[in-house]
């Protein structure tokens, strides 16, 4: 996640979106589900932002929109996967399944 955040920050760091950096993380709930949370560095709500659960080939397994608390919960897939926070072309963050604990 850190690499993704840094990469994204470099991408937008000098642009007009500097004050509105997207932030995202996922947690394993210990019950075969995972919860992902997103937000922005200026405190803006991420409600309605799309989140996609992808398998290793990039196939969409599940998708959802973040709720009013910037949160969405998925069933944890077997095998490798990733989760993408998609708030627009310059506001995407990917968290790898291996980094979710």
């Amino acid at each position: 996640m850190i690499r993704q955040l840094l990469g994204l920050y470099l991408l937008v760091g000098w642009g007009t979106a500097h004050a509105h950096t997207p932030l995202f993380d996922c947690f394993d709930n210990g019950d075969e589900t995972l919860t992902c949370e997103g937000g922005f560095s200026d405190g803006a709500s991420a409600e309605g932002v799309g989140v996609r659960l992808l398998d290793q080939q990039g196939k969409v397994l599940e998708q959802a929109k973040l709720d009013a608390r910037g949160s969405a919960t998925f069933k944890r897939p077997a095998g490798g996967f990733s989760v993408v926070f998609d708030a627009g072309a310059e506001h995407q963050i990917t968290v790898l399944g291996d980094d979710i604990s």
């Binding site: 950096t21 932030l23 993380d25 949370e37 937000g39 922005f40 560095s41 200026d42 405190g43 910037g70």
Partner: peptide, 10 residues
């Protein structure tokens, strides 16, 4: 004392 997680302000 205040702690922030992930950079999202609260």
């Amino acid at each position: 004392v205040m702690v922030n997680v992930g950079g999202v302000p609260g």
